[in-house]
C-alpha cells in the first residue's frame, strides 16, 4: 500500500498534464507593420503573455506597449509618447473566445482555423474585434498565429498631418504564440 500511493500520485500528475485544458506563454511575439509608399515601419515585441483555456475557449492576451522595439530611436519615442501614450496606457489587451476550440483534438498534430472574438483594448479604448486564428497542435503544444489589421483612428490615435503620409491609417498586426500546457 505504501508503495502504491506514490505511484498513483505520479499517475494522476501525468494524467493531469495530459488533460490540462489551459495553455500559456510569456513569450508571444507581436509584430506590427505600417506600410505606406513613403515608408515602411515595423516594430516587434517578444514578451506578450497569453492564456488560453481550450475547454471553454476563453483567451486572454496582454502586451506592454513600451516593449515594442523599432529600428529608429525617434520612431519608438513618437510611438510611445505621442501616439500610444504608453505611460498612461501601458498595456494593450485582448479578452475573448476562441470559437470552436473545444472541438479540437489535442492528441493529434494538425492545423485548425478558428475565429477569436472579443474585446481589444489599445490606447485606453476598448472595441469588439474578431480575428482569424490558426491553432496548430504540435506534440502537445499549441502554436497560435493570427494576422489582422487595426484602423488607427478607431483607437483615438491621432496622427499629425506632418507625418500622415508616412504612417498607415490601417496597420497590420501579426501574433505568434507557442502555448504550452499549464502545469
Amino acid at each position: 500500500m505504501k508503495r502504491v500511493f506514490p505511484v498513483l500520485l505520479g499517475f494522476f500528475c501525468v494524467l493531469n498534464i495530459a488533460f490540462s485544458q489551459k495553455y500559456f506563454t510569456k513569450t508571444a511575439v507581436i509584430t506590427f507593420e505600417s506600410k505606406t509608399p513613403m515608408e515602411n515601419i515595423e516594430a516587434v515585441n517578444k514578451s506578450g503573455t497569453c492564456v488560453a483555456d481550450m475547454a471553454s475557449g476563453n483567451v486572454e492576451f496582454a502586451v506592454l506597449v513600451k516593449g515594442f522595439q523599432f529600428e529608429k530611436a525617434l520612431m519608438q519615442e513618437h510611438f510611445n509618447e505621442n501616439y500610444m501614450e504608453s505611460t498612461k496606457f501601458p498595456k494593450a489587451t485582448f479578452k475573448g473566445k476562441l470559437n470552436g476550440a473545444e472541438k479540437i483534438d489535442r492528441t493529434k498534430n494538425g492545423k485548425h482555423n478558428v475565429k477569436a472574438s472579443g474585446q481589444l483594448t489599445v490606447h485606453g479604448v476598448t472595441k469588439p474585434h474578431t480575428v482569424d486564428v490558426v491553432l496548430e497542435v504540435k506534440d502537445g503544444k499549441i502554436i497560435a498565429s493570427s494576422n489582422f489589421s487595426i484602423a488607427v483612428a478607431d483607437y483615438n490615435i491621432a496622427i499629425p498631418s506632418l507625418v500622415k503620409d508616412n504612417i498607415a491609417k490601417i496597420v497590420n498586426v501579426k501574433v505568434n504564440a507557442n502555448l504550452e500546457p499549464l502545469k
Binding site: S47, T49, A62, V63, L64, G67
Partner: peptide
C-alpha cells in the same frame, strides 16, 4: 535592460 512594465512578471526589454 529597460523596464517596460509588468504583466505576469516585471518585464525588462533590450
Amino acid at each position: 535592460g529597460i523596464c517596460t512594465g509588468k504583466l505576469l512578471d516585471v518585464v525588462l526589454s533590450r
